[in-house]
């Protein structure tokens, strides 16, 4: 599985964009599952989550580089969203530890994780429909005095902070081109605008890590480009971005590092160029025997093997006393 590092691909795209520090830092990292990164911000160790008999997530070791965009890909049911839920406290694993800047995130509630600076968005966009766009934004601000019950009753305590937050929110809304909609109910926005709003709202909390769950799903191509631009901007501002995406063009375009999951495991890691050539990845997406149809000889040989096995079984049962032949074939 480990492929040779291929520096040519990485440098080619690294030269284009000025501030891709993470990509430069990751250039010499081998393309191996669980490889150590030069400056990890999130470290996952032995995290498993099972739902009944199904192992949804089983990650031995995973490090996320600080200040980079890490793409998380994998076929449906690979456990990407479950891993997101575990990392942000929305779900608790059966075992394992995971840290953010050396701080354990185990047993923390979602709001506590968010307060540490790890915010997320959702696969199904959660715009707060019956609040205005501006109110949606203001909700994202952290440490608001007016959010505690008793000081809420004394506007003098929170008015100044509210004003500052409103200015910040308007600045973000202008950047995301939603400022004209500030007094509209969020429920009246289009799907793509909701994605923008959700991302802008997450930024109100000045996060260090932004986790985007399928930010481009259901968004028209024109808006996809602008969303991509915004995600790249986050990196420019020094935030770490982890995102789940199915569109490989998007992943190739913006990721510094790609993590591939299948059936709950991380099956490959590497820069985007390395992923499409990786055999484990191709197997996970298309099935292990996708390029090897049975030849006539193979088919004959397998048939002969099966018949020989049946013959052995029936000899065995004749030597014994009873046992019907159907049991023999099944075995």
């Amino acid at each position: 599985m480990p492929a040779e590092p291929n520096p040519t691909g990485a440098t080619a795209s690294g030269a284009r964009v000025p501030a891709r520090l993470a990509q430069a830092a990751l250039r010499d990292v081998p393309w191996e599952v669980g490889v150590a990164k030069p400056d990890p911000t999130i470290v996952v160790d032995g995290v498993t989550r099972t739902f009944g008999g199904l192992t949804a997530v089983s990650v031995d070791h995973l490090e996320i580089q600080r200040g980079g965009i890490t793409g998380l890909i994998g076929p449906n049911g690979a456990g990407k969203t479950t891993l997101f839920n575990l990392l942000t406290g929305f779900d608790q694993p059966d075992s394992g530890t995971w840290t953010f800047d050396g701080r354990s995130l185990g047993k923390l509630a979602p709001h506590q994780v968010a307060r540490l600076g790890v915010v997320r968005t959702f696969q199904l966009t959660k715009a707060l429909s019956r609040l205005t766009v501006l109110q949606n934004m203001l909700l994202g601000a952290q440490g608001q005095k007016g959010e505690s019950f008793f000081s809420a009753l004394v506007p003098a305590l929170w008015r100044g902070q509210e004003k500052a937050n409103t200015e910040k929110a308007m600045e973000l809304l202008r950047r995301f081109k939603l400022d004209a909609k500030k007094d509209d109910f969020a429920g009246t926005l289009s799907g793509g605008q909701r994605k923008l709003l959700e991302m802008a709202r997450a930024l109100m909390s000045d996060p260090q890590v932004v986790m985007l769950d399928e930010p481009m799903a259901g968004v028209n191509p024109a808006l996809t480009q602008s969303l991509l631009g915004h995600v790249k901007d986050l990196r420019e501002e020094g935030m770490t971005v982890i995102f789940v995406e199915h569109d490989m063009d998007v992943v190739r375009d913006i990721s510094d590092w790609v993590v591939v999951m299948a059936a709950g495991n991380v099956i490959a890691e590497g820069p985007p160029e390395s992923i499409s050539q990786n055999k484990a990845v191709v197997d996970a997406y298309l099935g292990a025997h996708h390029d090897a149809p049975l030849t006539v000889e193979d088919e004959d040989r397998q048939l002969a093997e099966a018949e020989a096995a049946i013959a052995r079984e029936s000899e065995g049962t004749e030597a014994g006393t009873s046992a019907p032949d159907q049991g023999g074939t099944a075995r």
Binding site: T88, R115, L139, S205
Partner: peptide, 8 residues
């Protein structure tokens, strides 16, 4: 859940 994700 959206409110939880925003640290409340």
């Amino acid at each position: 859940d959206a409110v939880r994700a925003l640290g409340k």
